[in-house]
Amino acid sequence: MDNYELVAAALSKITNTQVITYNEYLTQKDRNPDQTFQYFDSNLLHDIYLVKGVVSSDVIDVEEEVENSTRNLENVFISFSGETLEIKNLNANTTISQLKNKIFETKGIVPNDQWLTIQNVLIKNLSGKTLTVKNLNSKTSINQLKNKIYETEGIPPDEQYLNYGLKSLQDHQTLSYYEITNDTTINLSTRLRGGSNTIQVLDRDFLDPRYDYDFTNIKPSGTYTRGNYKYVRPYGWNRMAMRVLNKYSDNSWLGVNNRTNISESVEGEWIVSFHGTGKNNVNSIAKDGYLLSKGLRFKYGRGVYSTPDIDWAARYADIFVYKGENYQVVFQNRVKPDTFDVVSFDSGLKFFISPNDKEIRPYGLCFRKI
């Protein structure tokens, strides 16, 4: 079995576009000189297809977060009734509440009666094209912004990935929550979409076969920990390693240094988790996680769902066909300790909910025949 061909077949299913191996590209490029090829963006894949959802938000006051968080402002122009008021000498510690107080001091409009408008937001896509979205306000949600982009560009909201200031913009939050002010530029990426004439080429360095491990025929035995947390190895699955060594500032998160016992953790190591890749199943895992977390107190309103149980993650995984046989694929991740919430079933099954998608990193793809 060619691992790259299997991975390409899986990614074709996950992204709903054609993904081929580099060797296939070498064969096709001369036969099809008019065909467009581009390298597969593995970073974008992880960012877009992480299984995200809402945590029970009945204990979260979003408006309070908006009013009391800091904004990066200098001078702001306030327009009302045909008049423009300039508020000067603001700084990085100025809050929206303080800005409203300055308006009150100048114009006598009480803060609770003020509705601050963000007139224009600039949307820049990967090709460098910039779109101006007008007539927004500070309470415009990211989902509403996506709908405006859809009206102009025809990109469905669930295929848009918005990023600003190294943050992924979540649908339920507002522009002011992310410190987005007038003429702010937001970066737009899109899901890899079916129907495109572009063929995605899987880089030869996407995988790292040195760290592959086939658990298909291995029976469960012993107790293992990773990041000082119980690690249930993916028995019954074939784990193919992604090339992530030296991708980040250090490799301690992988636990590759100073391991003297294969079953024990090492210092600085992150915890192992799994998540399914089926984008059509995102609503299911989000709903399951929401119902499970309802009534519990969480300091985050949205997060990336994963689980230490690969068989549970498989419930949300894609099924694809490779050489006439059906397979499933699940991401294997490392999650930074002490950065996620845990919700549990009575059976002991757990969800991890990571509020920051930079603190969950994929490092393997697990496959099994079904």
Rank of each mutant, 00 (worst) to 15 (best):
P355V: 06
I199T: 15
Q332M: 07
N228V: 01
G303S: 12
T339M: 04
L145C: 07
Y213H: 11
A10T: 04
N326I: 04
R315I: 03
E5A: 09
I149G: 01
R193Q: 15
Y150P: 02
K100F: 05
A313M: 05
W270I: 07
L45F: 14
T184N: 05
S97I: 04
F340N: 02
F104D: 11
T27M: 12
P234T: 06
L292V: 02
G276W: 06
N333Q: 12
L26P: 01
S42I: 15
I109D: 12
V110I: 14
A241D: 06
I142T: 01
S12I: 05
K29S: 06
I370K: 13
F37D: 08
S97H: 09
I96D: 04
R191Y: 11
I353N: 12
V282T: 10
D171S: 12
I199E: 06
N101V: 12
M242A: 10
N68T: 15
I48D: 07
L192T: 09
R302T: 12
R191H: 11
E151F: 07
I360N: 06
S284T: 09
Q98A: 09
M242I: 14
N238Q: 13
Q170M: 12
D338N: 13
S306D: 07
M240P: 03
Q114I: 07
F206R: 08
T130S: 10
E5G: 02
V343W: 01
T17F: 03
R226S: 14
K148Y: 08
T185H: 00
Y363R: 03
V304M: 13
P308V: 04
N258Y: 14
N251G: 08
K13E: 15
N251D: 15
V54P: 07
R302P: 00
K13T: 13
T190M: 12
N23G: 00
F320I: 08
E63M: 07
R361V: 09
N326H: 12
D341A: 15
K107G: 00
V330G: 05
F40K: 07
R204W: 01
L6S: 02
V19G: 04
V19F: 05
